[in-house]
Design a protein around this nucleic acid. Structure first.
Length: 721
DNA sequence: AGCACGCCGACT
DNA sequence: GTCGGCGTGCTC
């Protein structure tokens, strides 16, 4: 028992998966949102002060404030994280700590690096760097145009820090006080009439979600840039969220070129922890005026937020798939609502959720119906392969089209959403198929690496020389992956320069830059690759796209599969063609009459969306209902199922809420654990939320008898069932 | 989640 | 005899 006398009692959230706070004795008043260092059991941890108390039933340990100059975390940020924790059924502690950058999770002070602005001195204006030092010239030119922050200089050249120090010592540049220089804009391309009209239609103030529905190549990014410029000019901050794969150096440099003297902070999970923490704090302090980030960017504190942009809003990478399972797009909407600022959701193939909001008038809809370059839309043709012989998955018409394209000196792209050589390896005698020991998945043959690999866990093994069941040495690869198609193309297009692009060849940033350069330098005739190639990249001489093995998306058990397939095909089709020569897209299929392909050929997203929405309405599926899934996994499937069964039995009946029986997950085994799940859905959010509350109250108690081996989690608004 | 404590098998 | 397996319980 402790009572408040001279000390203050604070309630603190810690990074432990427990749905409660812990009380500590503070040396004096500590504001809500302060970071403190506390002893927790045997270890020292960071706590976030969430409240105060006058007495506590515990014997309190002391909390020490963390002595950096950072202010308490702002109220609106805490409100956002509290909402996310509550909505996605996550304990407040873990939610706070996923939203914080790495450096603020440790019980140590974080002193952000100084980020001064520099400008050229008169002497520096007269001076010129040696002409052959291209980077130096670029840096000098940038400084000549307007004052430049140190962090922005680093984006021009990696060694800019040292250069700036040299120039400072030489007297070419000088530091200026923190007052931000007036907004300078880089070269502005002329807007097309359609772009100008779209821009004019966008709301400028208050919470006003707008769906910017624009086909690939229609110049959505330019619209974002214009609205961001307005926001920055008005002295507000802008937040841009992009899918994981799209935050490329190309995109970043486009923004930097447009806003040369604006401090831009980039936030994504693959950057170094220090850089991410610096960017986060720069946004918090208002030094960074523009934040470009992947989903975790939605948690950047922005004291002067004026605009949010979510690019490719339909993209699945906005949903976090573990821990705090948030949708960055949905949180961005909540955030814009709360801050009372406009939010722009851009896509060529919007999610059905957003499309329906626009249909219902809850979101504005602004359309960009033509390509900004004036290029015609690519002609999409279906190749009916029911009667055609296939050579490693390639039909004769497809091969001929690729050959013609190569002869004309144009680039083509073969799109196939499957890595490796073949998705299965089978015994010709007994039918054995190589499977993963820890997952219920087939092993993928990677011929180049001489391995069988599981694409769901880390398992890999050498390729067996004979069937382990019957000893037959004749093992046959079934189906095609990118490696196999690459090999087939090398065979059928002799002399063609073929480049495979997938996660196995382009592991990271530098590799991608090299490939990109090679394509631009005309060193590639045929690109073979996965989704990686489809997203947001512009290859000027690409005129033909061939899509292989896409029919799977039509029969999939996942009800969202056709939505995703349409969007992927639309996206990859958008890579083909330029103003002077329209592109061609060939889709090999066994089902050419399928409405999805028919709509695709007409470039008719609205028609396809209407069909899908109608289907979803008939079957009571999202967006006509709301869902959450309870997943459980254990060493034995029976335990996971028994727990979920007990849970379902313990839940009260709530009007309008449907709790389905536990089912075995579509992939039963994953990483050595066996999984089952329960789907809960309702047409109304309110009753569904009450059910969720019931569930989170009951589950921990019901899970106890199964001990540590049983794990469970809730996924609100799941993308995959 | 960590991390301690605690109670049963193969080792110097 | 003890090193170490992981089952159980607690952390203000």
């Amino acid at each position: 028992m402790t009572d408040a006398s001279s000390n203050t009692i604070i309630r603190v959230a810690l990074d432990v998966p427990l749905d409660r706070t812990f009380d500590y004795a503070a040396p004096g008043p500590l504001a809500i949102g302060s970071r403190v260092s506390v002893g927790f059991g045997p270890r020292q941890m960071v706590g976030i002060v969430l409240g105060h108390a006058t007495h506590s039933e515990f014997d309190l340990k002391p909390a020490r404030p963390i002595e950096d100059r950072l202010p308490p975390l702002p109220d609106d940020w805490l409100a956002l994280v509290r909402f996310a924790a509550d909505y996605y059924a996550c304990a407040p502690g873990p939610a706070l700590f996923t939203a914080l950058p790495p450096a603020l999770r440790a019980p140590r002070p974080f002193i952000p690096a100084r980020d001064p602005q520099y400008r050229l001195t008169p002497a520096g204006r007269d001076w010129q760097p040696p002409r052959r030092a291209a980077r130096q010239c670029e840096l000098h030119a940038a400084l000549a145009a307007s004052p430049l922050a140190r962090s922005s200089a680093r984006a021009i050249a990696a060694d800019a820090g040292r250069r700036l120090d040299d120039w400072l010592a030489a007297g070419w540049i000088e530091e200026i006080d923190d007052q931000p220089a007036a907004l300078t804009l880089g070269p502005l391309p002329a807007l097309t009439v359609a772009q100008q009209q779209a821009l004019d239609q966008l709301p400028r103030d208050g919470f006003s979600p707008t769906l910017l529905f624009g086909i690939t190549g229609s110049g959505k990014t330019e619209i974002y840039l214009r609205r961001i410029a307005e926001t920055l000019a008005a002295g507000r901050q802008a937040l841009v969220l992009v899918p994981e794969i799209n935050l490329t150096p190309q995109l970043e440099s486009r923004f930097r070129a447009r806003f040369p003297n604006t401090v831009i902070a980039c936030l994504n999970s693959s950057q170094p922890e220090r850089a991410r923490s610096e960017a986060w704090v720069a946004a918090w302090q208002g030094r960074a005026r523009l934040v470009i980030g992947t989903r975790l960017g939605v948690f950047a504190p922005l004291p002067e937020l004026g605009l949010i942009v979510v690019d490719e809003e339909h993209d699945a990478s906005f949903k976090q798939q573990d821990g705090l399972r948030y949708s960055a797009r949905d949180l961005a909407i909540w955030r814009a609502h709360r801050a009372g600022v406009p939010i722009l959701l851009g896509s060529a193939t919007p999610s059905l959720e957003s499309w329906r909001h626009a249909d219902a008038g809850r979101y504005g809809r602004v359309e960009l119906a033509e390509r900004a370059t004036g290029a015609a839309l690519p002609a999409i043709h279906l190749i009916d392969i029911r009667r055609l012989p296939l050579d490693d998955g390639l039909s004769v018409p497809a091969i001929e089209a690729l050959a013609r394209c190569r002869d004309k000196g144009e680039v083509s792209l073969v799109y196939l959403n499957r890595r490796g050589y073949s998705p299965a390896l089978s015994c010709t005698d007994c039918g054995w198929i190589a499977g993963c020991p820890s997952c219920s998945a087939k092993l993928v043959l990677h011929l180049r690496e001489r391995q069988l690999r599981c694409h769901h866990c880390g398992h890999h093994q050498p390729v067996p020389h004979a069937c382990p069941d019957c000893g037959n040495p004749d093992l046959k690869p079934l189906g095609q992956g990118t490696q196999r198609v690459e090999a087939a193309l090398t065979r059928v297009l002799p002399g063609a320069r073929i480049r495979r692009i997938d996660r196995d060849t382009v592991s990271h940033r530098d590799a991608w830059a090299e490939v990109y350069q090679a394509i631009h330098d005309g060193e590639v005739d045929v690109l073979v690759g996965t989704q990686m190639l489809a997203k947001g990249h512009d290859f000027p001489t690409l005129s033909l796209v061939v899509a292989l093995n896409t029919d799977g998306g039509l029969y999939s058990a996942d009800f969202r599969a056709s939505e995703t397939l349409f969007s992927q095909l639309m996206q990859v089709a958008g890579r083909a063609g330029r103003a002077e020569r329209p592109g061609t897209v060939l889709v090999q299929t066994q089902l050419p009459e399928h409405p999805l392909y028919q709509a695709l050929c007409r470039h008719d997203y609205p028609g396809f969306a209407a069909t899908l929405l109608d289907e979803r309405k008939q079957t009571d599926m999202p967006p006509y209902c709301h869902q959450f899934v309870v997943r459980a996994d254990s060493e034995k499937l029976a335990d996971a199922r028994a727990f979920l069964g007990a849970l379902v039995a313990a839940l009260p009946a709530i009007d309008g809420v449907c709790v389905y029986d536990p089912i075995t997950a579509s992939m039963v085994r994953l990483e050595g654990r066996e999984r089952a799940q329960v789907l809960v859905q309702s047409a109304q959010r309110g009753p569904l939320r009450r059910m969720l509350a019931e569930l989170t109250a009951q589950a921990p108690v019901l899970a106890k008898p199964y001990g540590r081996h049983l794990r469970w989690s809730v996924d609100v608004d799941p993308l995959e069932l």
